[in-house]
Design a protein around this nucleic acid. Structure first.
Length: 788
DNA sequence: GGGCCGGCATGTGTT
DNA sequence: ATGCCGGCCC
């Protein structure tokens, strides 16, 4: 099977350093393979090395490999890593990307076969909902009772399961608006076709239809794709599974990598069953388990393993590590959520004093409302933090408005974009005018812009409205002409200016207006690298993400969901209370399945930690403005005792337990408060109080600009810095092991504020291991020591 | 057409 | 407690 000619060049160099299981997964190129890759077992490495291996053996050309991921970030990383291994060839991997980007690629090539034209637009959630709203209005459905948002979810759910309007089970079509769900779905699809548009779900669903209804096209892809690789297989939904299965029927060389224990997206349509059933779906499949963990210490793995063992219906893996056992997982109770935040803040300051980088610390919460407490606390302490996740750049209203202008310029038939900005800024083209344009468009079978163009030559509109609309149409014509002669980012600036859009925000005196103007500038800047406007718009319809700078040294705050795939030295896991985590709604709506997914989420959280995992719970928490007392999470009891240390909250008031049984399960070893003395006079507490008084200036002037935390009406450092940055990506979170020249050589004598004098015994990028004369061996970041 | 008030929900979130 | 949306009034 190997092609000796190509294999000769540097054979197997890339295989060095793989463990036997990883190597097995890489080398099993033929037939179906399922790689069950536990947390921190080198999953990405296996995937990328496998591709390098296939290329290096000459088994396939880069263009003959289909490699799918869920996120752009994952695709980007994979590209980079393959590139590092095999060089230029990766440029020729046109089929490495997200399910959706590959879906678009296929649909654009064969658009006419599914009733589209090749230049179809891709609607995002916002457009989708506005469209559905129109349909609901047309049907006279009470939007209060049946919100468009809900319908969008219902339709997405159907699409996730690979169901077209005709395939919706009868009972379910009735579930929305008294049985009108299915009809609305059908109407919606018809509207999309009329608009020459698709939504995200269609990118797969129409892809499936394309392959099913056109055997020649399918056969073509079968010939093309000699190898198929899928990342995060546990997150695939039914539609993705069907799509993959169709394509994999060709070569049958399909390799899926995933971890059933990390399936946390069931609520979004992911089917754990896909991974559980792999061997049935692909008979003769080889299953490789990666269980050797390179990330976490023994105690962390032990606690996580014991927890996840409470789930049924797993494929079963047991992670092991050859590293040290390390520190036990700590469990700390606090009186309320404020004390929890205070205790965590103190532990972080402690770590900071010991020389730990804040980028290596993360707080992982179940729900975003928990973040606020930490933000407040950290602002008070002057501790830098960054919130990862949250509203994304391209979802901001001002960005979407600006994009709508550009969309209308690029494709005059984009009615949804036109509707969005026809009266933004306010120019007197309200509902009445828009309705007239709509009516004419429907009668004349024209896009809205064209209908408007005709309408202004008639007497139908009021003179004032007619003039405004004529000007607007004229502006779009002018901008469209300029598109040919002018760099697109300059055009964007002109459009925002001449349309009055920039001015609208300049006049706006609300607190976030400056931030929005910043965002618009950032948008214009982000357009520069693209070849032209069309290219830019195509990119952002699929990549609703912007690379934010990594920012300075700051604590990472994010949800457990967005932490998947990341790792940190120290992980704080607050809010382990019944109702919060496991989340009550997950239990109510999904029962046992919901509980198991919550448990997997806990497992994901624990396994993000390399060296320290610190779990917290509070007895009282304010939820929706009401103080509620809570019971420690059942997950606490599911951590193995030998791996856990129950510590005292620094605030020291314990949690006043004794409320177990409220949720109908047994007593907990965390019910009793006896291990928590009331020690309000601990040094930490005194210091915290001192800080609260004197430390205020630190909150506002302290350190880098990463910290946000100002609520809406406070000075907009938040909006201007963090706000513009949006999502932060993984890249910088892991300490660099190469690249930066080491500041200290082995054997150098150094001095550390806390540990005193010592000698460098190992160097890993910016991380040093130092044998201190008094304090013994410690790992420190190089910026915290100086040459002695 | 614009601004104010009241009702309602308020898990996780990629493409 | 808080924010968002829709309805209602000027």
């Amino acid at each position: 099977m190997a092609n000796p000619g190509r294999a000769a060049a540097g054979r197997g160099v890339y295989l060095d350093g793989l463990n036997p299981e990883q190597r097995e997964a890489v080398e099993a190129t033929d037939g179906p393979v399922l790689v069950l890759a536990g947390a921190g077992t080198g999953k990405t490495r296996v995937l990328t090395t496998r591709i390098a291996h296939i290329l290096s053996l000459g088994l396939a050309w880069p263009s003959q490999i289909l490699a799918v991921t869920f996120t752009n970030k994952a695709a980007r990383e994979m590209k980079e890593r393959i590139h590092a291994m095999v060089g230029e060839e990766v440029e020729g991997m046109p089929w490495l990307g997200t399910f959706h980007s590959i879906g678009v690629r296929m649909l654009r090539r064969h658009a006419e076969l599914v009733g589209l034209r090749s230049g179809f637009t891709i609607l995002d959630t916002d457009d989708q909902i506005r469209l559905l709203k129109q349909l609901l209005q047309a049907e006279n459905i009470d939007e209060k009772r049946w919100p468009a948002r809900l319908l969008a979810n219902v339709i997405d759910g159907w699409k996730n399961r690979g169901l077209g309007p005709q395939q919706v089970p009868a009972g379910e079509g009735a579930s929305f608006a008294n049985g009108r769900g299915q009809k609305l779905y059908a109407d919606y699809q018809a509207r999309l076709k009329a608009l020459n548009a698709v939504d995200f779900g269609d990118l797969l669903l129409e892809g499936i239809r394309l392959l099913r209804e056109n055997p020649d096209v399918l056969a073509d892809y079968h010939r093309r794709f000699r190898y198929i690789l899928v990342d995060e297989y546990q997150d695939t939904n039914v539609a993705q599974y069907l799509w993959l299965r169709l394509l994999a029927q060709g070569s049958r060389n399909v390799c899926c990598v995933g971890d059933d224990d990390q399936s946390i997206y069931g609520w979004r349509g992911a089917e754990v069953d896909n991974i559980l059933r792999f061997e049935t779906d692909f008979p003769g499949a080889k299953v490789v388990r990666l269980e050797r963990n390179y990330r976490s210490t023994g105690h962390i793995l032990g606690a996580a393993a014991h927890l996840i063992a409470h789930n049924e219906g797993r494929l079963g893996k047991t992670l092991f590590s050859e590293g040290e056992r390390g520190e036990r997982v700590t469990v700390t109770g606090a009186w309320d959520s404020q004390e929890e935040a205070r205790a965590i803040g103190e532990e972080i300051e402690q770590l900071q004093r010991q020389g730990h980088a804040l980028t290596q610390v993360a707080i992982l919460v179940r729900a975003s409302f928990q973040m606020r407490e930490f933000e407040d606390r950290f602002v008070t302490l002057g501790l830098n933090y960054r919130v990862i996740g949250g509203p994304r750049f391209y979802e901001r209203a001002e960005i979407r408005d600006a994009l709508a202008y550009l969309r209308v310029i690029a494709s005059p038939s984009d009615d949804l974009a036109f509707e969005r900005i026809v009266n933004v800024p306010k120019r007197g083209l309200g509902d009445a005018a828009l309705r007239q344009i709509h009516d004419h468009a429907r009668a004349a079978q024209l896009p809205l812009v064209e209908a408007a163009r005709e309408l202004v030559t008639s007497e139908e509109l009021k003179p004032k409205v007619r003039q405004t609309l004529r000007d607007l149409v004229g502006s779009f014509d002018r901008w469209r002409e300029q598109m040919a002669t002018m760099p697109h980012h300059e055009l964007a600036e002109i459009v925002l200016d001449e349309s009055g859009y920039t001015e609208m925000w300049q006049k706006d005196r609300s607190a976030d207006a400056t931030g929005r103007l910043e965002n618009l500038k950032e948008l214009v800047r982000s357009m520069e690298p693209f070849e032209n406007l069309i290219g830019f718009l195509e990119h952002i319809s699929l990549v609703m993400d912007v690379d934010g700078g990594a920012g300075g040294d700051a604590v990472n705050i994010m949800t457990l969901h967005s932490a998947k795939g990341l790792e940190f030295d120290t992980v704080f896991l607050p809010g382990w209370e019944e109702g919060v985590f496991p989340n009550q709604r997950a239990l109510d709506e999904q029962g046992r399945a919901g509980l198991e997914e919550e448990r997997r989420l806990a497992y994901v959280g624990l396994t993000r930690a390399r060296r320290r995992a610190k779990v917290f719970f509070a007895s009282n928490r304010r939820i929706h403005g009401l103080w509620q007392s809570a019971v420690p999470s059942r997950f606490l009891d599911e951590l193995s005792e030998k791996d856990v240390e129950v510590t005292e909250s620094r605030g020291g008031s314990g949690w006043g337990g004794g409320q177990s049984g409220r949720y109908g399960y047994g007593p907990s070893r965390f019910d009793e408060a006896q291990s928590f003395g009331s020690s309000y006079s601990t040094p930490g507490w005194q210091r915290a109080q001192a800080r609260q008084e004197s430390g205020r200036q630190g909150a506002f002037s302290g350190g880098g600009s990463v910290g946000g935390g100002f609520a809406d009406n406070r000075p907009s450092r938040f909006a201007a810095s963090e706000g513009a940055r949006g999502r932060v990506i993984e890249g910088e979170l892991i300490a660099k092991s190469t690249g930066t020249p080491a500041r200290f050589a082995l054997g150098t004598r150094v001095f550390h504020q806390k540990f005193g004098y010592g000698e460098v015994t190992s160097v890993e990028g910016n991380k040093l291991t130092v044998l201190f004369d008094k304090a013994g061996e410690k790992k420190v970041v190089d910026s915290f020591v100086e040459a002695a």
